[in-house]
């Protein structure tokens, strides 16, 4: 399932498979990741972490190849262009955030003065300016996530990989993290965010990659993907002055498969032809003298797409 992917491919997977003994991590995954923010979704065990680890060279594919800007992974060139925030919550606990990030900056090839300056800049950027010189062991979960992000950004990479960056964050910290990620995307970087928290991913991007049991289920715009999932009719909700009168007209439409009254002023129906219904509703409302105050599609969103794709992954879209 591959709606149009926009832009130059930054990360390319060519038939990548990865086994951990008898356990399958990834299976024949082929895709091209462009610049911008990409949400990497999937239930536990889907292969999201393996997907990111293969890009960083932490694990080697059993088959296939991964390239970053055309260069094979791993290599010095790709390490210079990749920033990675792993899902682990442990650091060099004995060090302060400043010391930790400075050491990694030096290890990235910067001289001492530049490393210290960049460390301070990135720690400021992630909002840790007041805690630079505290030991990481004293940090909260949110501060740790931000420290991870800082060390991933200090060499200004073109590709930023974030493995579950929202884990353990309170709502305020999550909002701050979302804002940071949006800024990275706006700067033209390729940001791949692995997450279970679909609401947050939806606020960041509509471009998603969905993995399930190591396989690529879908890649592209979430709305386009939704449009291709024919076996699940679209749900449409109408808030209006006389739902029963409007319902009698909707039932007569051949594409409407079911209908229910969700509230005294709200009718929900399922249709195989959402665009046709959207076009017909104004005429139906006018003909029956019904005032429509709201029209929404409760499942034209990431949660629904994710649910439809992963609860019954066989087959996918009808060609």
């Amino acid at each position: 399932m591959n709606p149009t992917v926009q832009g130059e491919a930054v990360v390319e997977f060519a038939a990548v498979s990865k086994w951990y003994g008898p356990v399958l991590g990834l299976r024949e995954v082929s895709l091209a990741v462009p610049r911008g923010i990409i949400g990497l979704l999937g239930p536990n065990g889907a292969g999201k972490s393996t997907f990111l680890k293969v890009i960083t060279g932490e694990v080697r594919p059993s088959r296939g190849a991964v390239r970053v800007f055309g260069a094979p992974v791993p290599s010095r060139e790709t390490f210079r262009r990749i920033g990675y925030a792993p899902e682990i919550e442990v650091f060099f606990e004995e060090l302060t955030a400043r010391e930790f990030v400075t050491a990694l900056a030096e290890a990235s090839g910067m001289d001492g003065a530049t490393a210290r300056r960049r460390a301070e800049e990135t720690l400021h950027e992630v909002g840790l300016e007041k805690a630079l010189d505290r030991r990481v062991s004293t940090y909260s979960k949110g501060m740790r996530q931000r420290t991870k992000l800082a060390q991933a950004l200090l060499h200004d990479p073109d590709v930023v990989l974030l493995d579950e960056p929202m884990t353990g964050l309170d709502p305020l910290a999550r909002a701050h993290m979302v804002e940071l990620i949006q800024r990275l995307g706006a700067r033209g970087k390729a940001v791949i965010v692995s997450s279970h928290i679909l609401d947050e991913v939806e606020t960041m991007t509509s471009q998603i990659v969905v993995l399930y049991k190591g396989q690529l289920l879908a890649q592209g715009d979430v709305h386009a993907i939704r449009g291709m999932i024919d076996r699940h009719p679209h749900r449409v909700a109408l808030t209006c002055s006389d739902p029963r009168r409007l319902a009698s007209a909707l039932v007569a439409m051949p594409s409407v498969t079911s209908l229910r009254f969700a509230a005294h002023d709200r009718v929900e129906f399922e249709t195989r032809d959402p665009d046709g219904c959207y076009a017909a509703i104004p005429r139906l409302a006018l003909d029956h003298g019904v005032k429509v105050t709201a029209l929404t599609s409760p499942d034209d969103n990431l949660s629904a797409v994710f649910h439809y794709l992963t609860t019954d992954p066989r087959g996918g879209a009808t060609p």
Partner: peptide
């Protein structure tokens, strides 16, 4: 074991 070595291993050396 806790994979903190990955912070070194994802640098260009």
């Amino acid at each position: 074991e806790n994979r903190t070595v990955v912070y070194w291993f994802t640098r260009p050396f």
